[in-house]
Design a protein around this nucleic acid. Structure first.
Lengths: 198, 198
DNA sequence: ACTGAAATGTGACGTAGGTCACGTAATCCT
DNA sequence: AGGATTACGTGACCTACGTCACATTTCAGT
């Protein structure tokens, strides 16, 4: 049920996003943008399913997705909520060629720009500033992942909950609480008890 | 007590490491290598101290370091053990210009190659393949960080301990157990109980 | 609007792992 | 070599959080 869409806004959103870290001429940006395929999904639809071949990553124009792992006991752990101007995929699979080990699906209706692994590498080779952009995008992601790891080791569930809401207040009434719990790594019951008094 | 050293091996170790992800001409590698400053540290010496200005990252030639955070209760959490051919620094501070929020010190005697932030950026600009190399270095780091995060959420202390030893068996008799515990995010007492049966 | 399915709240109870306390063994330093 | 520091083991107890069970509320699809 994916279908193609187009709006001028998406182009501008991506252009503005890139401009924060790299300098592209208009021709370079045209070439860059031409590699992205616009997609929409409805709430609940799956973008990447565990076991899939993964050959693309996704830039979020609108809506909210989750990248999550489900273990043998059917417990879900959310690695990332993907919001507008964020990138998402199963990067382990995408970079290594392995099958997807996680799932990505849509918490709300979503508009995405899809970039294939092959096109990204081609663009990085052709346009030095594109490689620069992707280097810094991952640099920031790496730092964020380290920070989250530290928060996991150092803080209890309540502190992590407050930290998350301070960082992303939009999440509070956008995603159901049991997904917040799955992101924080606590049971939904414990999370419920955390914010209802004590 | 840092002092300058030099050995031909370091150059070859770095060269071989780079060659795994990027293709440099001999001249390009000469230029690249000329930006690295060799340093040695004795066991226990501090490379980065919390609060320091951080302007370099470090490539490990020999020995083992730890990158760690100490919280208000003086509990230590180890973000990374740095082994030969790994890179280490406080990347949050290095990339953002902030003061160091973590410490890096030496578990054994150590030989490092030091690369300044400014030189890295200059090299990335001059030599496209260097930017390529650093993009992929961080890509891999990002994937590893995500994997560790997931392991934290999904596995208990024992499973994480076994995972660590399977991945890096050298650590077992290289670093003291309480540091392993600080990496796993458990108390040294709990870790001790884990491997002495039950 | 009706109905089944999610999402949420809350009690009772279990458990992994933390903390404190104290001991022994291994290293380091001069 | 001897004393001090650091590493490690183990028992007793505590606590944050998980699990299960069930009630209630909200939401989505026809």
């Amino acid at each position: 049920m994916k279908y193609i869409w187009y709006n001028m806004e998406a182009r501008e959103i991506l252009k503005e996003h890139i401009a924060r870290t790299a300098v592209l001429t208009d021709e370079e940006f045209d070439r860059f943008f031409s590699c992205f395929k616009p997609l929409t999904f409805k709430k609940g639809q799956v973008v990447i399913r565990e076991g899939d071949k993964v050959d693309s990553e996704y830039f979020v124009i609108s809506g909210c997705l989750k990248a999550f792992f489900v273990n043998d006991d059917v417990k879900m752990y959310i690695l990332q909520f993907a919001m507008p101007t964020w990138w998402t995929s199963d990067y382990n699979a995408l970079y290594s060629g392995a099958r997807a080990g996680i799932n990505v699906d849509c918490i709300t209706d979503v508009e995405l720009l899809c970039l294939s692994n092959a096109d990204r590498e081609k663009l990085c080779k052709e346009i030095h500033q594109v490689e620069h952009f992707f280097r810094w995008r991952t640099n920031k992601g790496y730092v964020a992942a380290q920070r989250r790891l530290l928060s996991f080791m150092n803080n209890d569930a309540k502190a992590r909950y407050e930290e998350l809401l301070k960082l992303y207040p939009q999440l509070y009434n956008l995603v159901p609480k049991h997904l917040i719990a799955a992101y924080l790594g606590v049971s939904r019951e414990t999370l419920s008890r955390l914010y209802n008094s004590h």
